[in-house]
């Protein structure tokens, strides 16, 4: 009994904070817009009894999902978001892995301090940090001033309001999410495994690629998920650092919601976005599980 109660806690959490809100979004995605509060119809009115519940379900349809296929804006935005999220994840991994490796290899007395330094940026609001990047990257910003004064460039580089700025923003913002899981797996790694590899004639770099890398795989996977998923739907970074040509699904969603006041279509866009995220994750996890069973 106690065991069930314990298991129930995370499931209740999932139900209340994920499944119910998701079902509400699905419901709105099947509705139609209307000039009213809230701006869609039908709304469920339980006072009319069973008949009104039946009417409610009868009024729902998939029209909005069909609409999404009629305009290439949507799939272009999904694809462009996938591309930006994938590239940013790879960049974050390239930057984050050496940092995590260095931290795990540092003296034990240093590690808490290093860990603290990784977490430190979270003490300032995310929005303020992105604004700070605007000051760094703008044409008159610190970066250009530095490069100009060093004589490395003749005229200011245009970085702000381009995709480059979006990549910088995402890599900067999500770097701790990459470092922490990788650090956790590397720190737990048994150092004697490396010694054994070297004793058996493996070079240092060989030992890294054959032993360290495969053992840190769970950390890499966790880090990549933690970076990829939020950057796919990112809205703040592209709207502050990106230009008008930065096409991301988060911005399309914003426009459906705010400019068109079309909550149903906005919800349909959100449902598809969630499916794009969830289906590969489920397939991936199933694959992992199969592999684990095979290993045993």
């Amino acid at each position: 009994m106690r065991r069930y109660a314990l298991i129930a806690v995370p499931y209740l959490w999932l139900l209340a904070l994920f499944l119910i809100p998701f079902l509400i979004v699905v419901k709105i995605s099947l509705s139609d817009t209307e000039v009213s509060i809230p701006p869609y119809t039908p709304t469920l009115d339980l006072s009319g009894g069973w008949q009104s519940v039946k009417d409610f379900f009868a009024a729902l349809d998939f029209e909005n999902f069909v609409f999404l296929t009629t305009d290439d804006l949507y799939w272009k935005a999904y694809l462009s978001s996938l591309k930006i999220a994938a590239i940013s994840t790879v960049l974050t991994l390239i930057v984050g892995y050496p940092i995590a490796y260095g931290m795990a290899r540092a003296e034990e007395s240093w590690r808490p301090t290093l860990l603290m330094l990784v977490i430190l940026p979270f003490w300032t609001s995310f929005l303020i940090r992105v604004y700070a990047w605007m000051g760094i990257l703008s044409n008159e910003g610190y970066l250009n001033q530095l490069l100009l004064s060093l004589g490395l460039i003749g005229e200011p580089l245009t970085i702000l309001n381009t995709n480059t700025a979006v990549y910088i923003g995402i890599v900067y913002t999500y770097l701790p999410f990459m470092i922490l899981p990788i650090y956790a797996t590397l720190e737990r790694m048994d150092g004697s495994l490396l010694e054994a590899a070297e004793d058996l004639g493996c070079s240092r770099s060989g030992a890294f690629w054959l032993v360290t890398m495969p053992l840190s795989r769970p950390g890499i996977i966790a880090g990549c998920f933690l970076v990829f998923i939020p950057s796919l739907g990112e809205f703040v970074i592209p709207s502050l650092l990106g230009g008008s040509r930065t096409l991301m699904i988060g911005k399309v969603l914003w426009e459906e919601f705010f400019s068109n006041r079309d909550w149903p279509v906005a919800s349909a866009v959100a449902v598809i976005l969630l499916l794009i995220l969830i289906i590969p994750i489920i397939l991936f996890q199933r694959n992992e599980q199969k592999q684990r069973e095979m290993d045993q």
Binding site: V35, N260, R261
Partner: peptide, 19 residues
């Protein structure tokens, strides 16, 4: 109206992003 608004927003996205 909602229909025309959609045309306007779409046009605006096209103008701004080229898509």
């Amino acid at each position: 109206s909602a229909k025309v608004q959609r045309v306007v927003t779409r046009l605006w996205t096209k103008i701004k992003s080229g898509t």
